[in-house]
Amino acid sequence: MLLSLLTKRYPGMRAWLTQRLTGLLMAIYSVVLLIRVLVLTPSSYDDWLAFSRPWWWRLATLIFWVSLSSHAWLGVRDVLKDYVPNVKIRMVLLKLVVLALWVYLVWITLLLCNL
């Protein structure tokens, strides 16, 4: 229901709602992560591999990273809009942020696929 509001018709609400929804997803993932760590207490490399390997956990981790990337993009975009008045410099910085976020996202996706 809320996802249907993330359209160009509501540009202000879209960014605001996206940050809230991604924040919620990250919070849920963090709680589950904490519970899993406390219950499974992985200590060795093999333990961590077993911890991370289930397909549903890899999917959850990917959703977490997609959420983190979009959340971070919206936040950093606002900060740069506020504190970098020079449009050319701001555009360069914004492009660097997008590039960094995509590199991280592709990297984590490859890592998750190769577990």
């Binding site: 509501y10 540009p11 202000g12 609400m13 960014a15 605001w16 606002d78």
Partner: peptide
Amino acid sequence: NLEAPDRLYRCH
């Protein structure tokens, strides 16, 4: 009137 990205949603 408050839908433009910076009019309302700039409040953090």
